[in-house]
């Protein structure tokens, strides 16, 4: 990262020399020397995830509203949900968050093999989660169209599942890119950080979803 230094004497500034008024009294920051903003991608990505959180908060609020205005919840006649597989899935997803965290440590030591290893394990765990969810879908006796319970259940878990799937694609991409020499280094590894952050996000969303749909 370059540190910029003021140079050249004052008044012949970009501002003043153009007949500028008063506020800008400026010189310094030689052209092309000032790309010192650093890497803003992680900041931008975090902002995106905050925005994404609002999508889920909106959907959660809708679910909570349905629950709070319903006379009985779940509506009469809704079959009991299978709890074992979702519980195992939850454990897998939380554990996978710990696994993917290893990658962030590994890359700081320039250990690409470690990165790939932890990404691969996380990817397999994520795939197991999706498989478990699909198995659950296949064995449920209600569908998307069988009333408000089915609608909220499938759309919320489906939305989350879609995010898990995107996470798997991201991991695959990072693993593929890590084969290229010097693509990720100890200093610059936005892809790894972002994927890992995204995965934590997906994980936290699931915890709330699990509580809302299966426990409470």
């Amino acid at each position: 990262m370059q540190q910029t230094t003021p140079n050249e004497p004052t008044s012949s500034t970009a501002a003043a020399s153009m007949g500028m008024g008063t506020t800008v009294e400026a010189e310094a920051l030689q052209h092309h020397e000032e790309h010192e903003h650093g890497d803003m991608r992680l900041f931008g990505f975090t902002t995106f995830l905050i925005s994404e959180t609002m999508l889920f908060l909106g959907l959660f609020s809708a679910l909570l509203t349905y629950r709070s205005v319903a006379l009985v919840w779940p509506p009469a006649g809704t079959p009991e949900l299978e709890k074992l597989i979702p519980a195992i899935n939850t454990v897998i997803l939380i554990a996978s968050s710990l696994v993917i965290h290893q990658a962030s440590d590994a890359i700081k030591k320039n250990n690409l093999k470690g990165v790939r290893q932890s990404f691969l394990i996380t990817l397999l765990m994520g795939a197991t989660f999706l498989a478990g969810q699909l198995w659950e879908y296949a064995h449920l006796s209600f569908g998307l169209k069988s009333g408000i319970f089915g609608s909220t259940f499938y759309v919320l878990t489906g939305f989350h599942g879609l995010h898990v799937f995107v996470g798997l694609l991201l991991m695959g991409t990072v693993m593929f890119r890590s084969m290229k020499p010097n693509h990720y280094t100890a200093e610059s590894h936005f892809g790894i950080e972002a994927t890992s952050l995204y995965w934590h996000f997906v994980d936290v969303v699931w915890i709330f979803l699990f509580l809302l749909l299966y426990v409470l």
Binding site: T13, A15, T22, T23, V24, E25, A26, E27, A28, L29
Partner: peptide, 8 residues
């Protein structure tokens, strides 16, 4: 041409 520096 050069990034300005702001004083006010």
């Amino acid at each position: 041409e050069k990034l300005p520096v702001v004083y006010a």
